[in-house]
């Protein structure tokens, strides 16, 4: 699993990678959690809150962005940061997942939204899955 943060004039451009689509999605959730509070998911391995999310999307890229959007909304509504995803059902356009996280007092960064801009879930030359994700800050 790889997570990199690349330059963007006003927002945050994140590049994520994984050996499977599930690992790519997990990288997205961790990468977002680490933005909400710097390094949070790298340090916090336990959890005290879980939530279930069901997503039906137009395609695999939308499935990732829509899932991250749902995780973000749940983070704000539950004042929690989620770092772990368990997949119950997972196809190219549908996901049923349980997300696990930790309640927090506040966040260091306000992510307004997870955008579709530049997102494209695909395999790289080595057969690993990757995409960019732009967060509106």
């Amino acid at each position: 699993m790889t997570i990199e943060y690349l330059p963007h004039t006003a927002d945050i451009r994140m590049k994520i990678g994984g050996s499977s689509v599930e690992e790519l999605f997990q990288a997205g959730v961790i990468g977002m959690g680490n933005i909400l509070k710097e390094g949070f998911c790298d340090k916090n391995k336990s959890s005290n809150i879980k939530s279930k999310i069901e997503i039906v999307a137009l395609d695999q890229t939308c499935l990732l962005i829509d899932l991250l959007s749902e995780v973000l909304s749940t983070s704000y509504s539950e004042k929690s940061i989620f770092c772990k995803v368990l997949f119950t059902k997972f196809t190219r356009t549908k996901a049923v997942v349980e997300i696990y996280g930790t309640r927090v007092e506040g966040f260091n960064e306000e992510i307004k939204a997870v955008t579709y801009h530049e997102a494209n879930v695909h395999k790289d030359n080595h057969g690993n899955w990757e995409t960019l994700v732009i967060f509106d800050i």
Binding site: H8, T9, A10, D11, T115, Y116, H117, E118, I134, D136
Partner: peptide, 9 residues
């Protein structure tokens, strides 16, 4: 103006 995500800001 600066770069946004879709529409420029």
């Amino acid at each position: 103006v600066h770069e946004g995500y879709g529409f420029p800001i």
